[in-house]
Write a protein that binds this DNA or RNA. Sequence first.
DNA 1: CTGTTAGCGCTTTCAT
DNA 2: ATGAAAGCGCTAACAG
Lengths: 332, 332
Amino acid sequence: MATIYEVSALAGVSLSSVSRVLNDHEHVSEKTKQKVMAAMEELGYRPNSVARSLASNRSNSIGVLVSELHGPFYGEMISSIEMELRKAGKHAVVTAGHSVEKSEKEGINFLIDRNCDAIIILIDSLSNEFLIELSKGSTPIVILNRLIPEIKENCFYIDNELGGYLATKHIIEQGHKELAYISGPLFKQDANERLNGHKRALNEANLKFDEELFYEGDFLTTSGRVGIDHLIKTKRKFTAAVCANDEMASGAMKGVRDHNMSIPQDCSVIGFDNVYFANYLHPELTTMNYPIKEMAKMSAQWILKNVYKRPDVFVNNKFTPELIVRDSITKI
Amino acid sequence: MATIYEVSALAGVSLSSVSRVLNDHEHVSEKTKQKVMAAMEELGYRPNSVARSLASNRSNSIGVLVSELHGPFYGEMISSIEMELRKAGKHAVVTAGHSVEKSEKEGINFLIDRNCDAIIILIDSLSNEFLIELSKGSTPIVILNRLIPEIKENCFYIDNELGGYLATKHIIEQGHKELAYISGPLFKQDANERLNGHKRALNEANLKFDEELFYEGDFLTTSGRVGIDHLIKTKRKFTAAVCANDEMASGAMKGVRDHNMSIPQDCSVIGFDNVYFANYLHPELTTMNYPIKEMAKMSAQWILKNVYKRPDVFVNNKFTPELIVRDSITKI
DNA sequence: CTGTTAGCGCTTTCAT
DNA sequence: ATGAAAGCGCTAACAG
């Protein structure tokens, strides 16, 4: 593998000149530039990214820490981040924290030790305090799906409370009065906020929140399934199940059917996130859109702008959930 | 950030000794080891991975190139790889090729330039010849979902032809005689093989393959939907739709229902891959299991063994698809 | 605009 | 078992 030395020798210029054209510096005469490029071409020179990183203290890699790498939600997020980064010649180093505090901290250390220039984080177990502290370190961080007021510039989030509110409001407007709620794990901020929105909508309609018709799941499909079993066992009547995400909604749909009820006639269902397969469930799932792709893209752009000093792009931190009406809710 | 120099000074030993304990070398006295560890502890020393890479010519990063980063299939694969790698202190650098030849080649160069110690590849546009050539380079590669005889040690694959055969055989055994087939894009090897298996089963049952009841999709949900429209327009009768993957099957199910037919009574459906949401479709999808997690894990282990010389693990290259019977097929 | 010169932090012979 | 010293390939002041 040819090095910068050989290039400089062949081109008859100094190391620095080669380095300069490599880094697109100004103040290089067209002539030397041509000579250098020709030499590079002839030698099939490829820069050694590790050496560059060591000398410049930039790895051009961005760490991405998520709860899980699979699942419809994270996949879209990572896909979106990688696309944006790659256009800029940067790359994504991904790792998962599995919603376990210890493991998530390890993930962060892992990425920092890897000299990532910045880290994009979408996890739940680490406290705001920890993340605020982390943000004071030398590795810039951006946080997805969470607003931490003290470092709000680094946060990209949607109004989960509003989303929860709008979802439940919609279902109430269709005439439903007895709502079951299948929640995400309440140690997660978004699960909490969505539940709060749900309660606000209930309140506004003078309906009361029924503890018996509440089930705390884990955001995974199976817990939607189990949740329905649990709810039905209470013998309480409900005409709709409000689910805190689409995965649980899909599980809930299965559960409802396993009890020989049909959707939406016997039980309406609403989800949250609008993951791509919500559209392929039967009936198609009414849900709240979560613009994860746009948010992920924004977070990447923020890094390009703030860490790599790329020309300004407009960066928007707050996103809005939107109701997507499909066929899983019936009028009463 | 403390460096190895400060550690060596504080411990009162040489650079090399510090390096030795860092790398778990033998021939280090227990005493110096203790001194060094104490010094590291005191200084909060963290090794600089970039410097290590430059000096050792190992980046401890493994490139992963896939067609797409989202979708149920790739998500599970990447998740599985990352878990295995991280246990060994290695990390995954991911990138997508979008099934476009130019883009996939760029992806490979990108990863090589990033000094990845090895690359895991699951793509479709690059030819066997190209990959064989690539395998002769200095960066080891492993190939998922494809058998290239010349480099079969580096390949991890299932018998797609057998899978296609078994799927269709099963559906024939349920009494179906008029089968529509929604294929993956035929430039992809797996799509081809699955189709061949389908034809073999047909043949064996003395049924003929009907060109009119064939539709070439793109492995994405929407093309399953579109495929059904197309098939129905032919006015040919069919009692079952054999789909080359679950995503198209989910689209096909939607299509069938949009034409006011019910599943499986009016039209049975079978998929391929057994992605996690196949279980949450309605009716639950009968499909062929594709052990992508195990295969991904194996590929990571192969790298640990062959590139990093980790203690032998048993490595299996060939996997077998298995029929998963659920509710999307009816007896005739 | 171009060249010289130190490193970046660590690994790895080679002696001892 | 330990240490000295020479890089790994490149960047970034600084001087000219």
